[in-house]
Structures are given as C-alpha cells and as structure tokens.
Amino acid sequence: MAETTISGRLTNLANPTRFLELVGRFLPWLAAIALLLTFAGLAMGFAAPEDYQQGSTVRIMYLHVPFAWISMFCYMLMAAAALGTLVWKHPLADVALKAAAPIGATFTALALATGSIWGRPMWGTWWVWDGRLTSVFVLFLMYLGILALTRALDDPQRSARAAAILTLVGVINIPIIKFSVEWWNTLHQPASVMRLDGPTIHPSLLWPLLVSAIGFTLIFFTLHLMAMRAEIWRRRVAVMRRMAAKRAENRAPA
C-alpha cells in the first residue's frame, strides 16, 4: 500500500518534467504546422469566389466559425480537465484548466467581435439578442467568472478544486442556458433579423473553412501548451522560493 502511494507520488513528480520535455520537443513543429495551415486556409478563402449574397464579407466566416468552434471546444476541454482534477487528481489536469481559461476567453471574445463585425453589414446592426449570440455571450461571462476565480485564490491546490467545480457546474448548465435562451428568443420574436441560413455551403467555401478551422485549433493547442508550460514553471518558482525561505530559516538560528 505504502509502496503504491510512494510510486504514485513519484510518477506525479516526474510527470510534469516529462511533459515539459515532450512539449519542448514538439512545440516548434506544432506551431509551424498550425501557422502554415491557418495561413493556407485563409489564403484559400481569399482565392475562393465571393458569396453572391454576402459579397466579400463571407471572408469573415473563416475567422468567425473557427473561433466559435474553439470557444466551445475549449470549454469542453476544461470540463474534461476538471473531471481529471476531481476524480483522478491528475497534477497536469489542473494546470490545463487554469491555462485554458484565458485562451478560451480570448477566443470567445474574438468570436463575438468578428460576429459583430460581420453582423453590421449583413444585418445592419452590431448586436442582436439572438439565441445563439446570447448563449455565446453567457459562455463568455462564464469564462470570465472562472478566470476571476483562478486569479483570486492563491493556493493552487484550493483554486484547482474550486475552478474544477465551477467548470463542471457550468458545463451542466450550458444545455439549460442554451435551451432557455432559445425559448426566450422565440417568445420575443426578434423584430427584423435576417436569418443567415446557408442550407448548403458551396464546397468552394467549405474547404478553406475546414483548413482554417484545423489551423486555428492547432494554434489553440500551441498556445495552450505554452500557457501550461508557463504555469508549471510558475509553480516551480513558488516551490523553490518556499525552499529557499525554509533554508534561510534553518540557517538563521545556527
């Protein structure tokens, strides 16, 4: 029994180190591929013919759709990390959760911003209280809440648990919020919102979208791994500071 816990603790200690090594080796490649794919996707988007209805603004789609996708994907990733923290107490899970929050918030904010800029020429207004927009906005608020919580608590152990619980409560609530916002929206009958329904996206538009979506997702992973590495180093600094203080304390009386 004691042996298993000790060996478990050893792997726990070793894990972040091994993780750092792996990240150090793969990160440049990942970053290069991510940038390449993203620029290729965007370039393909500019080479593609313009939409007959939306003109050149359809090019905003190659940003907006990947951002919106990542904003949801990042929250799911954080929820998985939260489960990892609470159930398996994996040391990297909580680092992943904390590192993902600001990145997710940025992508969500960008999704809202690009959507808003797209909506201005298309709908004639910067913002509509449309069901989908409102849900994403609420998602953004939840990101900010998690961000505020992780920054407010100093003790990493405690903040990990708190953020994990909050994330899981949020993920349970997302379907409810989505449903209720849609219900509320049909109730209020938005006055004059043109629906952006492209039932069939032409393949010439779809391919660039797919490539840029993969590219942006890889950019997200690159940023996330970098942020995780910074977070691990931050914790190391804290541990080393504590050790230095303890050593100084021990030396002082002697």
Binding site: S56, T57, R59, I60, L63, H64, F67, P102, I103, T106, A109, L110, A113, T114, I117, W118, R120, P121, I219, L223, M226, A227, R229, A230, W233, R234
Partner: peptide
C-alpha cells in the same frame, strides 16, 4: 472595411495573447 476590421481585430487578439504567454514563459 468590415473584412479588414475583422481580420485586424483577430490578429491583434491572437498576437496579444501569444505575446502575453511568451512574456509569461
């Protein structure tokens, strides 16, 4: 104008985020 604005905002946001993380590291 709108297309440029959207790309500018996104580039600014992502580059800002990347720089922040790099500086942190």
């Amino acid at each position: 104008v709108f297309v440029t604005a959207a790309y500018a905002v996104s580039a600014a946001g992502l580059i800002g985020l990347a720089i922040w993380i790099l500086v942190d590291q």
